[in-house]
Nucleic acid binder design. Structure first.
Lengths: 298, 298
DNA sequence: CTCAACATGTCAGAAAAACTCACATGACCA
DNA sequence: TGGTCATGTGAGTTTTTCTGACATGTTGAG
């Protein structure tokens, strides 16, 4: 009652194909990294299924019977095709660039300044950057990984590698007109400022306030910007006091374009690298390690 | 260090192919007679090997990713080819005639007279007869089975089904000129005869002599024939006393063309049906049963 | 001829792969 | 909101496959 379109054991077929191609049970065993006994047994499985011998044994070596030759002609091409298809797929895969999705503010303020070093340290990555406002949202061309600032619960369908806790703090330009009334005072001084903020993350100031024990309601908001990137440009230009993750203003602090008189405070969010589930490329581990190091060393 | 021409688990590949073709893990599971969990697991094996998802899961069903489509395109044809090749091979096999090798004397004297009944009882056999002087010798076109009279040790490389012990005895035509001096005497009467014999089986008379307690040296030999078939024709023609296996002269005895005054005696040989090893066709069992019945019922 | 070197077959036990079952999750629909 | 469908997951079990040791039979050299 065996449905004729069903296939026999594919491992047995593969053993047959190798034996037929190499003309030897022992060499087929070598190719498949098993013992000759395993091949011998697999051949018997096929022969029993067909109720006909596929090889004539003559003590020293084997030769195909008529039925064996027919089977070889029918399956050899299929196995070639499978091997070619599979290896090409793997080759394409390993040669394809690694697409990193990332919000444009992070990209501009943090990734791009480090890009030369990143490409020098991880050249095999062949990194391609893909600016996307929300890299964790479902989209047409899913990136290989997404760099983001996010808090649990982690987005569904992604595997999250936590890189470092986020630290945020107020920053202000030395050119800011109201700087004088802020210096040498503690955080409460900010209650008198019209704070610059970004609409893409309205919780930044309240979170910070909570972290340093100020009531969130004590804060007054000034101008809002659509993106963190604009917010920081505004701060550098001396338009007021902004709030930012430390790594994004690190260079500005070092070069004196911004001040952070009250330091930075840890939030509940983290820098994360998120990868689509069941993609555990070895390249991802390398990237995670590099990013962790970059975020924590300074 | 994975050699790129190596294949992944073929069972996993088959699970993928079925799932891609049917667009559903559950239906693939049905087709392959396993649970959906088994398919799911196999798909994961492939995805881990490629480090890329092959399907996008959306709670209700799956759809191929770009990489999945590429893999499907590359392997679907190969699986079609394997299925077609295998099923055609099986079809050819089951439709092919069953070739029975048999010495020409047996063929003429025993098989052919029973052929109409044999074909009536076992029509699925589609029997083809292949007269060969020594059907157990290695030859170009090996038969599916060989009918022979033989004694152990059995020929190497064949699987032997013993059908019935052989019985041989002297036979003589009622038209034989010397019949008068034989009738109503015991076997010793034959010591005075020039016994007809076949050069293809010189041991027949000595064996018979031993079986009935006569010294083999007491026998005198007359004319020899190249084949048993000729020997029996000579006996029927009244040329002298021949020796023959009982089933081969059964019809002649019944119809009075030959007499067997001293009956038949068992030898160490048997009627056998020999089949090439590892060919255990169901048709063989049917044929063995039929032959056994035919040889023992009379 | 005998013997060593091959090549393959065979079997019991061991290892690995595949599967099942039961439950969990998420999407869709009424 | 609960029910159904489709799939994921994990522990434990079944099935398949492999190994390792030995047997058989062939070949060719000495």
């Amino acid at each position: 009652m065996t449905m004729s379109r069903e296939l026999p054991s594919l491992n047995a077929l593969r053993a047959f194909e190798a034996t037929a191609r190499l003309g030897s049970v022992s060499r087929a065993a070598e190719e498949l990294h098993v013992t000759h006994g395993a091949i011998s047994r697999q051949l018997r499985v096929l022969e029993e299924a067909l109720e006909q011998p596929l090889f004539a044994r003559h003590g020293r070596g084997v030769t195909l019977t008529a039925m064996g030759e027919e089977l070889r002609d029918r399956v050899a091409g299929a196995f070639d095709q499978l091997r070619d298809g599979w290896s090409e797929l793997r080759r394409h895969r390993s040669e394809s660039p690694f697409v990193l999705g990332c919000a444009s503010s992070l990209l501009a303020r943090w990734v791009i300044p480090r890009l030369d070093r990143l490409e020098r340290d991880l050249p095999m990555l062949r990194l391609h950057l893909s600016p996307e406002e929300n890299p964790l949202a479902p989209q047409h061309a899913e990136p290989d990984a997404a760099l983001a600032l996010a808090a649990p619960p982690w987005p569904h369908g992604w595997q999250v590698h936590e890189l470092a806790p986020e630290q945020i703090g107020p920053v202000v330009s030395p050119r800011y007109a109201g700087l004088a009334r802020l210096l040498d005072r503690d955080e409460t001084a900010l209650c008198d400022e019209a704070l610059l903020h970004t609409t893409s993350r309205p919780q930044a100031w309240p979170e910070w306030a909570q972290a340093c024990g100020l009531p969130a309601t004590a804060l007054r908001y000034g101008q809002g910007f659509a993106r963190l990137f604009y917010l920081l440009e505004a701060a550098v230009a001396g338009l007021g006091v902004a709030i930012a993750p430390a790594p994004l203003v690190q260079d500005d602090l070092r070069e004196g374009r911004l001040l952070a008189p009250w330091g930075f405070r840890q939030t509940s969010a983290s820098w994360i690298l998120a990868t689509p589930r069941r993609r555990n490329d070895a390249r991802i581990d390398a990237l995670v390690a590099w990013l962790r190091n970059e975020l924590t060393e300074s």
